[in-house]
Design a protein around this nucleic acid. Structure first.
Length: 566
RNA sequence: UGGGGCAUGGUGCAACGGCAGCACACCGGCCUUUGGAGCCGUGGAUCUUGGUUCGAAUCCAGGUGCCCCAGCCA
């Protein structure tokens, strides 16, 4: 049974499914995940994937992964593999992998059945003719500036062909006897139906493209409406869960299955996920990749699953985010900040803490013995004692962040400035004595003295410092490239804008910094926190000589807020 | 003068005729060997007009606003 408090699927779906089980409409549950293999998965797909997966799971049913490969001109095997890999990474398990194309033969038989029933016909009209005879939507909708009222469609002159002629024509369409685009098979429903989809929708079109699985066997390929519901039914899918835009297709979905007297799969719709600053449009995503705005489909600035993975976002964070959104049928736009909060929450619990200096400034401890090296014990994760501790080498010359020193401190600035004492994390108290400047007047070296009695970070005399800063030992540090990311887009809803005007030219900044030696063999994808900076993960561009890190998400930075307010 | 869907703080959700609550964001404070985390607190919402009712975010009627639908895309 499902537990109301832990359910990960929308309430209205859970209730509908439970009811179907209770009143005997179905005695088992099967859902399907229907990606079209024409692109990479992004965060927008995840919601559908998870709802399908968890619905099956919560009701002890199973999930089929069915590739919707009905349009050979757009689909490629490359994407099939990528989608499977991404779905598996997310943790989704499917009972069976199928393809719409597995059912092409059966589907054709069903079409013949419909023709024999007098419910489908071959139409010889051109595409323009068909479009013109479909009728119009009324004024006020974005498609009609001129018509004041909805206009019914006009019956095709070929609508009343005999069953025999239709059967013959359909057979010949299948055999490749006709030119591409010259004829279609249409369902015979109602050309004046208020729902335009019911005005004799196209079932098959002629295409001579090579299909990634069926090769050159077929010359006709089914449309979405004449495939999806039929496949659901053929597979015994009980609940076909899809986004709200398909709501208008439901009457057609049901019409076909009723006329066919086929297994009555049920379509239920939910609101798709919209995320601010995330691009979901496949067309635009492709353009970003092809024009080199980003470095590939797995660019960490993208909200593709591959991009998120490379960025260091875990599957758990993604699942927590999506399932935690709750559900209504409202159109909605979720703020990226909410996603980031979940990512931080997830990483806070699991990321190993490390020290890394992103904008190095040399700090010299004048009274520290030349050549001495001490191993300081550092906690790996204060949120998780079982993560243990590590040793970090400490010596006379260190690097600290440029930001952690000001020659003339602003109000409420507690870090290093001449005369001020701070704690070097896990090491000693140091007090700034003087600085060395270059010709431009910039500080190039900060000189300090340390208090040997404060080893470990506490003063025996009980005095306090207001700030703790991080550091790496210059002699023992590892040079590293650290890639800092900002929003890729300058507008909240990039899907609505023109690419040329909405791309943030400063979304990537590659820093040359220094990191703890222990990071030399960090695993690609491993979650890390650079203390006081943010969450990072090693990128696959890393080499043994020079690791590369991606910023996953920054730590909440309250100082910058204080500073902004002045 | 078409059909379908949806309206609750800035954002996303909850309240299924009975005190409008949660998360994120925002603001203030406490604490802190991460200006992180954690803890405490403030402000802010039922699209509108009527009706039913002891009582309406919830039920009814009208209005308004937003979204989807004229691919031989999915």
């Amino acid at each position: 049974m499902t537990d109301e408090t832990t359910s990960r699927i929308p309430t209205f779906i859970r209730e509908a499914v439970a009811k179907d089980l209770k009143n005997g409409r179905f005695n088992y549950i099967r859902t399907r995940l229907p990606p079209e293999p024409n692109g990479y998965l992004h965060i927008g797909h995840v919601k559908a994937f998870l709802i399908d997966y968890f619905t099956a799971q919560e009701f002890g049913g199973e999930l089929y992964l069915r590739f919707d490969d009905t349009n050979p001109s757009k689909e490629e095997t490359e994407f099939v593999d990528a989608i499977k890999e991404d779905a598996a990474w997310l943790g989704i398990e499917w009972a069976k992998e199928t393809y719409a194309s597995d059912y092409f033969d059966l589907l054709y038989d069903w079409a013949v059945k419909l023709v024999k029933l007098g419910l489908a016909y071959v139409d010889d009209q051109t595409q323009e003719e068909m479009s013109a005879s479909r009728g119009t939507l009324p004024k006020g909708t974005k498609w009609s500036e001129t018509e004041s009222a909805i206009k019914p469609g006009i019956d095709s002159p070929y609508r009343n062909r005999s069953v025999e002629e239709n059967l013959d024509l359909l057979e010949r369409m299948k055999n490749g006897e006709f030119a591409e685009g010259s004829r279609v098979l249409r369902a015979k429903i109602d050309m004046s139906h208020p729902n335009l989809l019911m005005r004799d929708p196209v079932m098959y079109r002629i295409m001579n493209a090579h299909h990634h699985r069926t090769g050159d066997k077929w010359h006709i390929y089914p449309m979405y409406d004449w495939s999806h519901g039929q496949n659901d039914s053929m597979e015994g899918v009980t609940h076909s869960l899809c986004s709200n835009e398909y709501m208008i297709h439901r009457p057609l979905y049901e019409w076909f299955l009723q006329k066919l007297e086929a297994f009555p799969s049920r379509q239920i719709e939910f609101t798709r996920l919209n995320l601010t600053y995330a691009m979901m449009s496949k067309r635009k995503l492709r353009k970003l990749v092809e024009t080199g705005v980003v470095r590939g489909w797995d660019d960490p600035r993208l909200t593709t699953l591959r991009g998120l993975r490379r960025r260091g976002v875990t599957p758990e964070a993604i699942i927590n985010f999506v399932t935690g959104l709750g559900e209504t049928k409202n159109d909605s736009y979720v703020e990226m900040a909410q996603f980031e909060a979940i990512i931080r929450d997830d990483l806070n619990k699991r990321a190993l803490r490390r020290m890394a200096v992103l904008h190095p400034l040399k700090l010299v401890i004048d009274n520290y013995p030349e050549g001495q090296v001490e191993e300081m014990e550092a906690v790996n994760n204060p949120e998780d004692p079982s993560a243990g501790t590590r040793k970090v080498p400490f010596s006379k010359v260190l690097y600290i962040e440029q930001d952690d020193f000001r020659e003339t401190p602003p109000p409420k600035y507690f870090r290093l400035f001449p005369g001020n004492e701070v704690r070097l994390r896990y090491a000693y108290f140091v007090k700034c004595t003087h600085i060395v400047k270059n010709e431009a007047g910039e500080a190039t070296e900060v000189h300090c003295t340390y208090d040997p009695t404060t080893k470990g970070g506490d003063a025996p005399d009980g005095r306090k410092v207001k700030s703790t800063i991080h550091w790496v030992s210059a002699e023992h540090a590892l040079p590293a490239e650290v890639r800092m990311y900002a929003q890729l887009f300058t507008v909240e809803r990039p899907d609505d804008g023109e690419l040329e005007t909405i791309v943030n030219p400063n979304s990537l900044e590659a820093l040359e910094g220094y990191v703890e030696l222990s990071l030399a063999n960090a695993r690609v994808g491993e979650p890390l926190q650079f203390e006081r900076t943010g969450y990072f993960t090693p990128d696959l561009d890393s080499t043994p000589e020079k690791p590369v890190f991606n910023l996953t998400v920054s730590l909440k930075d309250t100082w910058s807020k204080i500073e902004k307010k002045g």
